[in-house]
Design a protein around this nucleic acid. Structure first.
Lengths: 249, 249
DNA sequence: CGTCGATTTGACTAAGATCAATTTAGGTGG
DNA sequence: CCACCTAAATTGATCTTAGTCAAATCGACG
């Protein structure tokens, strides 16, 4: 029985014209899905050595804990994204991953990945591209933390998340749900929960976002993008081109 | 006449056992060096399309300007590092590069890189590794900006730079010179120059660093690493292993 | 009904920014 | 050699942003 193509492969193919054989080999390496509960840490070490994941469904995030309990969230990931690939490549484990919602994940073992690159070299180039794109997002996040005010950071991050999610079809009725509690958003933005909450208020009053028990909902992405002065170019997304597959909302 | 191996190739080889043919092809693609003056922006577009650089000598940094003049420096780069590779791969140009000192650079054209990956697929894996390592550094920087105090940030960044520089043989008599004025350090750390200067003072008084006209000099890296609680694991450097080639100072 | 985590609000504090001089040190021209 | 210029470094005074502490509220769920 033929199965639908894994989300990670679909995303790679948007960029690199992968041959059937390559896509097939990658699909074989991805194998079956594991289920993970919401709000749990993901294991990066299995019985067979280091693993990374390709997300099939659900949201997760990468974070780093400091010794004294402070925590910085590095980025959010969902269907089509990869988790821990860098860690797998570098053989270090400098940070951790945690689910926000229940997730369906493909395991990626280092051994399999190495074999894959040896047999299908173009896959290395494709993964290289995926990694470059992830890094562009991290860099933009870094710029926000270094030089933008709380309000600007929040606006930019919500734009980034909503644009990415929308471009992968995760918008519901024109709205994008970010299934993260405020504690998590605060740790991503380098803010205290209290200050995040206060920064959020004016945005809620203007109808840009809404807080629901299941997470924050971006109600008016267009206006948010405009008010935040957000430029989605670094995402490789083209929101103004209705003919482009990434056109959203 | 045989020339010494470019620094970038030497660095790749530390990690991936590249065959002679691969190293030779990469060396051919790198070609001759360009000279760049200190304190000048690097062009990312040439007559032949987008270019990136592999640094042979000198220091440079990647930065992003915001509309209103604020600036965030993303990272510092020197011999063996690459500049603009991500931009080249993604075909976007979301930030810029500027030299600190006079630099000797190899140009890397997109066309050449694509041909290289097609002919020598293991090079794609090697570059993938280099990119992963760069990203680990960016992530650590991001954590600093989000959750560490000015003093902690400064300590960590100096450790990172000094460890990296030392591991590539850029230490002089046990000291590492970071050829950056305080304005640049401040923009990297997300601080004002005034506050950076004040944060620097206690470190100078304790003899950890020194300010000289040509830049900041890290005098006692060991103590700095200890006081900052810096863990160089994410750099892929092993300072405590005298047998390892990365052993420093 | 009670509990627990998440959210919200108020009052106060602190880290770091901003503004405004002043000093320093190299480099330049005379 | 000296006067002068400029970019960088330094210092003081004041202001703002965001953090901390503490308490109250809310909502889902057993």
């Amino acid at each position: 029985m033929a199965r639908a193509q894994p989300a990670f492969i679909a995303r790679l193919r948007e960029f690199e014209g992968l041959a059937e054989a390559e896509a097939g080999a990658l699909a074989a390496a991805l194998g079956d899905c594991v289920e993970a509960e919401g709000r749990t840490d993901l294991q990066l070490e299995g019985e067979e050595g280091a693993v990374a994941y390709a997300i099939e469904a659900g949201w997760a995030y990468a974070y780093k804990d400091l010794e004294d309990g402070r925590r910085q969230i590095v980025g959010f990931h969902f269907a089509g994204d990869t988790l821990g690939l860098r860690t797998l490549l570098l053989r270090t484990s400098d940070h951790a991953f945690r689910t926000l919602t229940p997730c369906r994940l493909h395991r990626l073992r280092r051994r399999d990945l190495e074999g894959l690159f040896a047999d299908h070299p173009r896959l290395a180039a494709a993964v290289l591209w995926a990694l470059a794109r992830d890094e562009a997002i991290v860099v933009e996040h870094l710029v926000s933390l270094g030089r933008r005010s709380a309000e600007e950071r929040l606006g930019h991050m919500l734009c980034e998340l909503a644009c990415r999610a929308a471009s992968r079809g995760l918008a519901e009725a024109g709205a994008v749900r970010v299934p993260a509690p405020q504690t998590v958003l605060a740790d991503a933005l380098g803010l205290s929960v209290v200050h995040l909450n206060r920064t959020l208020r004016p945005m809620r009053e203007r109808g840009l976002v809404e807080i629901e028990p299941t997470g924050l909902v971006v109600r008016d992405l267009g206006r948010l993008v405009e008010e935040a002065g957000f430029d989605p170019a670094f995402l490789g997304i083209y929101p103004d081109d209705p003919d482009h597959p990434d056109h959203m909302l």
